[in-house]
């Protein structure tokens, strides 16, 4: 196996730890309480970064899948597998924190007529399906090929989620349009939001690197077993 630079992991761990602590301070102490929504608005500082990281993870799956189909490089398959797995956890965080916010802001946990919620739930289910598919196929190369095709097709839901968040507004408020419109956030709220976004991204990169490392070891062990005829 190629040499793995552990120093990068240590650095990422330190960076994630410090930035998460700073994000915690900025979210709960430094940033003001929003007038209309009240204290529950602070969920946005980790709900939106969670969604952003999930999108980033699925985008990596998409790119790595294309590269796998192009070059037949198993490393790309390992990257897409790791990214999908870590992305699902962040997707789950968004999927749980959203309804908690909705319970206070909207008065209900879920609204099936909200395209934003439905498309995001579909996204989560699609990538669960991706992992199920990976477990269902025995042959390594076939599994990688099927997963790559699936990873490319599943990514089609990501633009749908973004479009539904930004443009398909129903009567219920959502953080997306507020953040992306001018004057939506005060400077202290912006600082809390972007530090939190940074902290989540660093945490994701760290978890992704560790997962890739483990998957490579799994691959090596499998190859050794094959050589020994076990």
């Amino acid at each position: 196996m190629e040499k793995w630079n552990k120093k990068i992991d240590y650095f990422l761990f330190l960076l994630a730890f410090i930035s998460l602590l700073v994000a915690l301070y900025l979210t709960f102490i430094y940033s003001r309480i929003e007038k209309e929504m009240g204290i529950i608005q602070k969920i946005f500082y980790f709900h939106v970064p969670g969604a952003w990281v999930a999108f980033l993870a699925f985008f990596i799956v998409f790119i790595a899948s294309i590269l796998f189909l192009k070059n037949k490089d198993i490393k790309m398959d390992i990257i897409s597998h790791a990214s999908a797995e870590v992305g699902i956890y962040f997707c789950t965080i968004t999927l749980i924190t959203g309804p908690i916010w909705g319970r206070i802001a909207w008065g209900k946990w879920w609204d099936w007529l909200e395209p934003r919620l439905d498309t995001y739930l579909v996204l989560w289910a699609l990538y669960i399906g991706y992992l199920v598919l990976r477990n269902a196929v025995e042959d390594d190369f076939r599994r990688a090929r099927f997963a790559a095709v699936y990873g490319i097709v599943a990514f089609a839901d990501v633009p749908l989620v973004i479009i539904s968040i930004l443009f398909l507004r129903k009567f219920m408020p959502h953080p997306g349009p507020i953040i992306f419109s001018r004057g939506g956030l005060t400077p202290d709220m912006k600082l809390a939001f972007f530090v939190s976004l940074f902290a989540f991204t660093v945490l994701f990169i760290l978890l992704l690197r560790r997962r890739i490392f483990l998957l490579r070891i799994e691959e090596e062990i499998k190859n050794l077993k094959n050589k020994l005829g076990r």
Binding site: I39, I40, K42, I43, Y89, I93, I96, I100, I104, L214
Partner: peptide
């Protein structure tokens, strides 16, 4: 309503670390 919101906020923040902890346990 404000104290209820605070409890919900705390619950949401805990969810992050519970999910990350589950992930680390599986790893």
């Amino acid at each position: 309503k404000s104290s209820q919101a605070l409890a919900y906020l705390f619950a949401a923040y805990s969810v992050i670390w519970i999910i990350i902890a589950i992930y680390l346990l599986i790893m």
